[in-house]
Amino acid sequence: MLAHVAQYAAFGGIAAAGFGVLFNFGRAALLWCAASGAMALAIRTVALNAGWNLEAASLVASAAVTACAVGLLRRQLGTAAPAVAVAGCIPMIPGAFFAQALLEMFELTRAHPVNPEALLVTSTISVLHVVFTLFAIGAGVSIPVHLLRGREF
Rank of each mutant, 00 (worst) to 15 (best):
A3L: 13
H4F: 14
H4Y: 13
H4P: 00
A10D: 03
G12I: 06
I14R: 03
A15H: 03
A15I: 07
A15C: 07
A17F: 06
F19R: 05
G20Q: 10
V21P: 02
F23C: 08
N24R: 15
N24F: 12
F25V: 08
G26D: 15
A28W: 06
A29I: 06
L31S: 08
G37C: 02
A38V: 01
M39F: 07
A42T: 05
V46H: 02
L48I: 07
N49R: 11
G51N: 04
G51W: 05
W52L: 15
E55I: 12
E55R: 08
A56N: 13
A56R: 09
A56E: 10
A57Y: 01
V60A: 15
A64N: 06
A67N: 10
V70L: 09
L73M: 14
R75L: 14
R75M: 10
G78T: 11
G78S: 12
T79G: 13
A85K: 06
A85M: 09
A85E: 09
A87Y: 05
G88T: 06
C89M: 05
C89I: 04
I90V: 14
I90A: 04
M92A: 02
P94L: 03
G95S: 07
A96H: 05
F97N: 06
Q100W: 00
A101W: 02
E107I: 00
L108C: 00
L108N: 00
T109W: 00
A111T: 03
H112N: 05
P113G: 01
P113Y: 00
V114H: 04
N115A: 09
E117S: 02
A118N: 03
L119Q: 03
S123H: 01
S123C: 05
T124Y: 02
T124L: 05
I125Y: 08
V127G: 02
H129A: 10
V130G: 09
T133C: 13
L134K: 09
A136I: 09
I137V: 15
G138D: 12
G138L: 12
G138A: 15
G138S: 15
A139W: 12
A139C: 15
G140M: 13
I143L: 15
I143Y: 09
P144I: 14
V145H: 12
V145S: 13
V145T: 15
L147V: 13
L147P: 02
L148A: 11
L148I: 10
R149T: 08
R149E: 15
R151G: 14
